[in-house]
Design a protein around this nucleic acid. Sequence first.
DNA 1: TAAAAAGTGGGGAAAAGTGGGGGATTAATA
DNA 2: TATTAATCCCCCACTTTTCCCCACTTTTTA
Lengths: 143, 143
Amino acid sequence: MFIGEYNYNLDDKNRLAVPTKFRKFFNDGAIITKGLDNCLFIYTKKEWDKLVKRLADLPISQAKSRAFSRLMLAGAMDVNVDKQGRMIMPDYLKKFAGLNKKIILAGLYNRLEVWDEKVWNKYQSVTDKDSGDIAEGLVDLGI
Amino acid sequence: MFIGEYNYNLDDKNRLAVPTKFRKFFNDGAIITKGLDNCLFIYTKKEWDKLVKRLADLPISQAKSRAFSRLMLAGAMDVNVDKQGRMIMPDYLKKFAGLNKKIILAGLYNRLEVWDEKVWNKYQSVTDKDSGDIAEGLVDLGI
DNA sequence: TAAAAAGTGGGGAAAAGTGGGGGATTAATA
DNA sequence: TATTAATCCCCCACTTTTCCCCACTTTTTA
């Protein structure tokens, strides 16, 4: 579904454009939530529903699963896409991900990730070094 | 499917031609991804779908699988081939592979590899010398 | 050596990205 | 409750990018 890396700007009204070819998936809105590694996750309604069901099954007795549910559920916001294909970024999510003007959108198959450009570049420079480990992962998958 | 070594130029508009005899495989588009050893991989839609099925189910809770997905999925780009048989190279992939004007395309059976000419020549000069040693290591893989 | 095919370059129309004004709805205050 | 204030979002307009198409050059082939 979603793949690729895209550059966009967050404007003064906190509007963020969605790549044209992905807009059709968000006709009935989108869910933006706090993600991992300092980014945000954007889900379609359909994918979000799947995720919520899995979160509901986490054992409430475990502190870690309670914390994860709070991150994903309490962090989530239902947003609309305007006629120009943009969604409005809530203030608390903008702060959470440290977003400035220059934004990276990353396609991760069933979700889009929102990164501040600088944070993204830093993450990349670390993981690019580990590409050896990543290559090992390829073998595990039989690729 | 794909074999051989081909010379092409990346033009000022970041367009890269595909060898004529291979174009028929890319009628419905192509996927370019970050590869190993500083090159890029080009897959047909069909081959890509085989790969991506394995990636879709990785657990988002593990930092390593997130890094892996980001390399393979966010690193990939869905591209079209124009009437002249060229695809447009996204900026971030051009940077990743250090591409300049002179490009080498290499056929690796189920994928095409994209190399900057200088990187290719350097890689060749090392591996040509060590080809004996490299072959020795393949015993483990049953070749 | 002529004709055909492939590689390469560039102009221009169309689409996408971006910014901002203004009206309508909602909230706030006297 | 009337008036004011604030927010949201729709729409218009400008800028930038993309991509389609045509044309020229080089290479291949008959």
